[in-house]
Design a protein around this nucleic acid. Structure first.
Lengths: 263, 263
DNA sequence: GAACGACGCGTTGCATGCAACTAGTTCCTA
DNA sequence: TAGGAACTAGTTGCATGCAACGCGTCGTTC
């Protein structure tokens, strides 16, 4: 097809940068899904996507399969994929599961022991978070998100368990289940500072529990910490008029049970 | 390739039965890996596999990608796949994680409530398990495995959480992490009956806790239940001369002396 | 003798053509 | 008029050819 000519100059460069057409298709597809470009439940046919994304069917199919494994798509029995939709119960369960797994990470870290150096590193990240709490501009929220993600990544690392990393990755790959999924939405709420400070104190308790090798405490604190996100989810879904909502908000299914399919 | 002619008659029949060449390749590859046909760490090149399995490269690649998501293969940075190897720590962590997630399933079931009918159904399965414990023939062990798998599947179902199902599936897809992974190995041990009876009593406690809506108890019983498998793993790896060992035993990496840590 | 460059082989990534299947529609027949 | 059969459009499944890449080897040159 001729239109690839116009793309190829750019795409071949991005090609090497992105490593492959598969990656390119994966990133673009994920972006399209998460920005609500497709209806929840809409069928994704290959040929239209080929035109839209600019890769051929082979890498596109691999990307679609990857997104199915990731949970954003659902395969149809007769072939083909549809955009998966999530109920609010799905979302809050996913967040609760993140809490369970992060709780296990915290428990492992406490039980297996971490060096004083690593404790200091955690405290340093949490100190950065604390300083960011006093600022209310948009950029500080972005910096907060980064620091928060860093804290959670570091916690996972302290558990020293590749299997746990894999399991947690399977959950946080869902757009609404990550540790910072609701931070930017939260910024719009009046009580946001209170919530963020609560999170900060959870972090501090988590560090202390790990340092003192209190596994059960570390686990339960991490679980409660995740439930902040459950509360945010409930707030956001109650005010569906909020502008940007949150990543993957377009995938939420209408809560009416009558809408459920007979199959 | 000409040899497809000889295969096509048979494979086309199996084709429809297996639903697709991808499924065919997936099942065959998994079988080859788990029976130890490949070395742990061995590179799997596509062309030799095409000859060996009898499907073309396209569905084979899809199957390889699926096995990577499943965790049995590891993708190389330059392309291609190698058979993943697991340390004993990986295996025991995976089992512990199954306990954590099954514990969450048990807690959800207790917190959300299950009908008396479902409690009876669980008791019925556990009753079948109890009756099978008195028999020591091979076939009874197979029946035991089926009933045990059924019990664990039912437990997961009672949690009523698709997200939890997905997360648990990600763990139990590893061959050594499933609830019945070590049953057949265990049959060879002198203390097997004692172990199986312990498992049975765990099941009974689990049912009772769910019935009484004791979430914390249900969770901790399920965790402890999974640790039976950790103990079995330790026994088996200590006696590496055991014949069939367990599914995926060929994937275990030899522990480097540095990894033997003070208990 | 050592180092560097070119060539060849094996490998994966990708694009595309063809076949099979599904669903919807129209037309024919009872 | 109602039911069924055939046709058509759209879709995915699959096989294969080609190109690019990495790597080892061999030859040449300094």
């Amino acid at each position: 097809m001729l239109s690839t000519d116009t793309l190829s100059a750019g795409s071949n460069v991005a090609n090497r940068a992105n490593r492959s057409q598969i990656t390119r298709a994966l990133l673009r597809l994920r972006e399209l899904i998460l920005t609500g470009e497709f209806e929840a439940g809409e069928r994704l046919s290959e040929l239209p996507l080929v035109e839209r994304i600019g890769v051929s069917r082979t890498p596109l199919r691999l990307a679609l399969a990857a997104l199915e494994h990731e949970g954003l798509l659902r395969g149809l029995p007769g072939g083909g994929y549809v955009v998966r939709e999530f109920t609010q119960a799905d979302m809050s369960d996913a967040i609760e599961l993140r809490g369970v797994l992060e709780g296990t990470a915290a428990r492992f870290a406490a039980e297996r022991g971490v060096s004083a150096r690593e404790i200091r590193s955690m405290r340093a990240i949490n100190g950065r978070i604390e300083r960011l709490l006093t600022r209310t501009d948009y950029e500080s929220f972005v910096l907060y998100m980064n620091a928060n993600d860093e804290f959670h990544a570091k916690l996972l690392q302290l558990a020293r368990s590749p299997m746990l990393e894999r399991a947690l990755e399977g959950i946080t790959s869902l757009p609404f289940a990550g540790p910072s999924a609701f931070v930017l939405t939260e910024a719009l709420l009046p009580e946001s500072r209170t919530i963020l400070m609560l999170g900060h104190s959870h972090h501090a308790a988590l560090i202390e529990a790990i340092e003192r090798r209190q596994g059960a405490r570390a686990e339960s604190v991490a679980r409660e910490h995740a439930r902040i996100a459950v509360r945010n989810l409930e707030v956001v879904t109650r005010h569906r008029e909020l502008p940007a909502a949150f990543p993957g908000a377009s995938l939420i299914a209408l809560p009416t049970p009558a809408e459920r399919e007979p199959a």
